[in-house]
Amino acid sequence: MRITPETKLTVFYCQNCFKEDSRILEAQMGSEVALYPIACSGRLDPLFILRAMEQGSDAVCLFVCDEGMCRYFEGNRRASKRVAYTRTLLDEIGIGGDRAFVRFLTESEKAKPVKMIAEALANARKLGPSPLKSASAKRRKK
């Protein structure tokens, strides 16, 4: 799977959040969503989010286990701090920090991946196309 200009939402998620195979989930969500499972949310690097935005995603969502529920103790907390840093960087870039967000999932939410991803997608739609897309569109018109 690749992120394309059609992608509205890129999802990074801890493998302990959703048990379903990412390909099955992707098939259910359609072309607007790109999914990337990671071994632990603590592995998330700000560069993942930057690259997703660069390649055409309108928003990035990170799903992590609920507060205190991380299998590796602090992965979720560290990841959310990195997202917070990346949000400031996205503000500096001019994309807007609100396009990257973290969702802490309760045990019952973890059982409903499609619902959770759909909610994040709705949020991404609300944010509209990334300023990077309108910039390319403008250039094409010229």
């Binding site: 930057l50 660069e54 960087l89 500096e92 870039i93 001019g94 994309i95 990077l132 910039a135 403008k138």
Partner: peptide
Amino acid sequence: QLVSALSMAFKIEG
């Protein structure tokens, strides 16, 4: 990170 950030920022600028 910086190259990615700068590329996007310049792209938005045109």
